[in-house]
Design a protein around this nucleic acid. Structure first.
Lengths: 204, 204
DNA sequence: ACTATAAACGGACTTTACCCCGCTTAGTGT
DNA sequence: ACACTAAGCGGGGTAAAGTCCGTTTATAGT
């Protein structure tokens, strides 16, 4: 009976129509965002645009913020793969300090690009903005540990550095203040700041 | 005609009934928060409780988040005074590094105490959570400058350290993870982390 | 006191996130 | 093929944020 083994990433138990509708909804969301910005994304609007019922939208994503989280997760997964198994210094192989720096250098542009969506994914009922944080936090923790940070400070510093990296783009920058990211490779104040921070913190 | 010169802090131009109603509403808000938590604060509920119309609530505070911002500002002003003109090392007089450390030591408990309200003051339509940030950011910037940080890194680091200090309590800690703050003076991981961060950053 | 006026008030109205529950359908075992 | 069942679907219903505009009222100038 040609039972396909893991036809897509979805871990067994999601029906084919459900998966199709999810894709349809995400595409609709991307279209609305591109055309009119995140603030114009409404549950009813998405449902109509995708030719589905409103209830379906909620079943798939749980909440409005959930839609943006799902959009982020898509790109987030790719980012995560580069961190976990890509080439150094972002991936494994380089020494911890260089990996920390590299992580920030890649993460800041990533967040700048996803700024609007990431902000829309913040939800007062959920503590962490996205799956985003759940990747950054353990990764930083591991690297900081390897870099020889005193264990007594590890927990507090992990949380603070996570906030230092992701917080600015969640909390302290408005949409208008996010300029086009300059030419790739050009210096960005947040990247510079991060490098300086890490090197002073664990390099000395 | 007994025109009182600045009878209260309100800087001329706010009518007496407006001021009275503002107080009434803030009191109602504090009561609801104490009884049922921030999530149960609704604009209609507040209006009814204060015996006013809903339009008035919006006129006074602009938005739901605005109410929480107003509540914070009250305490924030007191905090600010201690920073600007209180005794060192929090106030002026000590050297910049000690003032930075002291700022974190006082700020973390402050934010822990106001955690629920501070989170409720976050609003996706407004970039910074409260007047909170507008105090922390320039203050840190000044101290970091005095502490001899290279000007090239000053802007980026200011934003990041602000996020490092305030971000954890906005974004990365859920309500359940905020324990009663231990006895005053007892060590807190975030305070320790902050001290370590600052000393490494500008002390070395 | 009286009037003018700008601010404040109130509550109906609109929009939108989110809930609910009866109906439909894809997947599975025979 | 067929029936069975759990998952998915739809859209009407609720509650709460935010807007609007006609009415009321505090204050200043005379």
């Amino acid at each position: 009976m040609t039972t396909p083994l893991v036809p897509f990433g979805k871990s067994r138990g999601e029906r084919a129509d459900a998966a199709r509708n999810r894709e349809r909804l995400l595409e609709a969301a991307r279209a609305v965002i591109a055309e009119q910005g995140t603030s114009q994304v409404t549950m009813d609007g998405l449902a109509e645009r995708a030719g589905l019922g409103k209830g379906t939208v909620f079943r798939r994503f749980g909440s409005r913020a959930g839609i943006f989280r799902a959009l982020l997760d898509d790109d987030e997964r790719r980012f995560q793969e580069r961190v976990l198994s890509g080439p150094p210094p972002l991936g494994p192989g380089a020494d911890p300090v260089r990996r920390l720096v590299a992580y920030g250098c890649e993460r800041v542009p990533f967040l700048l690009e996803h700024h609007a969506i990431a902000r829309a994914a913040v939800d007062r009922s959920h503590p962490t903005p996205a799956g985003a944080a759940s990747m950054t936090q353990p990764h930083l923790r591991m690297l900081l540990g390897l870099a020889g940070l005193p264990p007594a400070h590890l927990d507090g510093l992990t949380v603070q550095l996570t906030a230092a990296l992701e917080g600015p783009l969640m909390l302290y920058l408005s949409a208008e203040e996010v300029p086009e990211l300059p030419e790739p490779g050009a210096p960005h104040p947040l990247v510079d700041g991060w490098r300086f921070l890490v090197e002073r913190l664990v390099g000395g």
